[in-house]
Design a protein around this nucleic acid. Structure first.
Length: 605
RNA sequence: GGACCAGUAGCGUAGCGGUUUAACGCGCAUGCCUGUCACGCAUGAGAUCGCGGGUUCGAAUCCCGUCUGGUCCGCCA
């Protein structure tokens, strides 16, 4: 370590330290060489302070200071003094004082940087930031996010420890499962031809821990999935994985709500109101067309099926007759949209699966629309009334099967909310979505699959529907089928339109779990050991797994979860800093008993 | 797997209705400058216009392909 070892941090200096000799270590944030005087802004994690070097007072230090460039690493000793009259910098936390540099040591020079560290508002290609992630993380906005994430995890641990949870680690080398997401595989050298899988989540193991009598478990667990990426999806993400025994759904809601209340209070000073509102899945889909509705704005979906069933507009009438529905949203004040703007919305709704988007412009004199001619006067009036239409509004309608309508209008709703600036910033709108269907019918596979995961328990009163499903006359997938009707004790936590946690009360009775596997046509596979464990006294249990990356990103106002992950991957799952993934030495492959068969057209080395 | 957007000195951009020494700001280098704080002033270096092919007398500019990054759909909790 250098001679000049720090005894203070840059950002903590102020008028109370005036007169003290301090030693600082840090980076040259900005350098201003006036020919005589040299000012160096010195930065460490705590902040920035100005150091002044005077050629008359300390010629040696001054001569060295003249060599300092941006981001040189320095040791500085000097006396804290009040800045001369008129030179106080109100933009700097330490701006009332400066350090009169007496001794300077260059601990390490730095090459000119690929992008500036000192400017907070920089526009640099994200690939450049990722290539030089160590420099990107040096920037103040990124440091703030790193610190926020640290504070959040620390508050999470503090709270859960206080509630009697035990933090327990589970293995990274697990067993592959065919269902759900694609696994990352790790070849076994010792067992030729066999593979481990990296965990998609510790789901089965945390349930196993309940059988072990742990009662309250948590882990900041890394979860890995080999699927395509998005702005809010990385190949590895972190969950606050929790599981509890002898609890009801409300117990889990209560702990989770108080957890985030504690975290928001400790880290942001924001007071969350409890309890969080709840919506059933059915209501969320009906009113917002989404199972993760953003409640920070309105634009709710309105069902007008009954109003249009008898009209001459065949698209609407036929859809309703065929068991579909017609729903609309009222884009308030968008009646002035240009033809192109409306066409864009139509195009977008098609992207989201709708066959089309009907629109009606509300004018003072009446309704203007290409489809108006198919409606009688009173039908139009009823439609306008149902949509709460006022002159200047734009009404948008989709007719289709309920899932399609919900998806298209739900996404259109979010798009319009953003486009119209209806979404207030700085608000944190949590809500529970409850009563998810237990199963989901996949027409293309002709079978039922699980909605969330296969371990979610059915609603107790829907338990008989499991058995009834084997004997029904109802067509698979139809609304009348018992398995379509069965609701589960699964729940999601939604924050500002993002799903930030998911959980359920689990099946703890082996026969119920086996029944569900049978309905899903699933081999228990990996879960076999859990089923066995259930036969040795499994407590009722349930849990939840909040996604840390998404929550921290929302808390910190980051655009992407990449900004709250220290070393994230690109959209093609590569790491631009370390250059992963990469080919490996043939010897390594040999040891693993693996031969690579490149796809046709792949790049050769 | 598909759609769209972007790629021009270290960074951010302009040029893209074809022909110029490829322009501007920041950064960098050198010199000057003793109260600056995005210091200032002057001079200068720095670009095979992502890559490959094609059209043309002539391509950063038009066409095709490809790579990389991003957003979205599919996929995924």
């Amino acid at each position: 370590m250098p001679d000049l070892r720090r005894d203070h941090h840059c950002g903590e200096l102020g008028t109370p330290q005036i007169g003290q000799t301090v030693t600082l270590n840090g980076w040259a944030h900005r350098v201003r060489d006036l020919g005589g005087l040299i000012f160096i802004e010195l930065r460490d994690r705590s902040g920035v302070v100005q150091v002044a070097f005077n050629p008359q007072e300390t010629p040696e230090a001054h001569a060295l200071a003249a060599q300092v460039r941006s981001e040189y690493v320095l040791g500085v000793r000097g006396v804290v003094r009040r800045r001369p009259e008129g030179t106080v910098n109100p933009n700097l936390k330490t701006g009332e004082v400066e350090v009169a540099g007496e001794a300077l040591e260059i601990l390490n020079p730095a090459k000119p940087l690929p992008f500036p560290i000192a400017d907070e508002e920089i526009h640099v290609e994200e690939s450049t930031r990722l290539r030089y992630r160590y420099l990107d993380l040096r920037r103040a906005p990124m440091q703030r996010l790193l610190e926020l994430r640290h504070q959040v995890t620390s508050a999470v641990r503090e709270f859960l420890n206080g509630e009697g949870f035990w933090e327990i680690e589970t293995p990274l080398l697990m067993k592959s499962t065919p269902e759900g997401a694609r696994d990352y595989l790790v070849p076994s050298r010792v067992n030729p031809g066999e593979f481990y899988a990296l965990p998609q989540s510790p789901q089965l193991l945390k349930q196993t821990l309940m059988v072990s009598g742990v009662e309250r478990y948590y882990q900041l667990a890394r979860c890995l999935r080999d699927e395509d990426l998005r702005a809010d999806r990385q190949p590895e993400h972190t969950q606050v994985d929790m599981e509890m025994s002898f609890v009801t759904r409300d117990d889990i809601f209560d702990v989770t709500e108080r957890l985030w209340q504690h975290v928001f209070r400790k880290t942001l000073g924001v007071e969350l109101a409890l309890p969080f509102p709840r919506l059933t899945y059915a209501e969320a889909m009906a009113r917002y067309g989404s199972d993760k509705p953003d409640l920070r704005f309105g634009l709710e979906l309105v069902d007008v099926s009954s109003l249009v069933a008898e009209t001459e507009f065949k698209v609407f009438a036929a859809t309703v007759a065929a068991g579909g529905q017609v729903k609309g949203i009222n884009a308030k004040g968008c009646g002035s949209f240009s033809r192109k703007e409306i066409d864009d919305l139509v195009e977008m709704s098609k992207e989201y699966g709708a066959k089309g988007l009907a629109y009606v412009i509300v004018e003072a004199g009446g309704l203007r629309s290409p489809i108006a001619k198919f409606f009688r006067e009173e039908q139009l009036a009823a439609l306008a009334a149902a949509m709460n239409a006022e002159p200047g509004d734009l009404l948008l309608f989709v007719a289709d099967q309920p899932e399609v309508v919900a998806n298209a209008l739900g996404r259109l709703r979010v798009h319009l909310g953003r486009q119209l600036g209806l979404i207030p910033s700085g608000e944190f709108c949590f809500l529970w979505v409850v009563d998810f269907p237990l199963f989901e019918y996949k027409p293309e596979e002709g079978r039922y699959t699980f909605m969330h995961n296969p371990v979610s328990a059915p609603h107790p009163e829907h338990l008989p529907l499991l058995e009834a499903g084997w004997h029904t006359d109802a067509a698979p997938g139809s609304p009348a089928h018992p398995w379509t009707q069965a609701l589960s004790l699964q729940y999601d936590l939604v924050l500002n339109g993002s799903e930030v946690a998911s959980g359920s009360i689990r099946n703890h009775r082996a026969e119920v779990q086996k029944q569900i596997f049978a309905i899903l046509g699933m081999d228990p596979g990996l879960a076999g050991f859990l089923l066995e464990a259930f036969e040795y006294g499994a407590p009722p249990h349930g849990g939840i797994a909040p996604g840390l990356d998404r929550i921290v990103a929302i808390m910190g106002g980051a655009d992407s979860i990449r900004d709250v992950i220290a070393f994230p991957k690109t959209a093609s799952a590569t790491d631009l800093m370390m250059g992963a993934p990469s080919p490996v030495d043939p010897k390594q492959l040999q040891e693993l008993h693996i031969r690579v068969v490149p796809p046709p057209g792949a790049k050769q080395d």
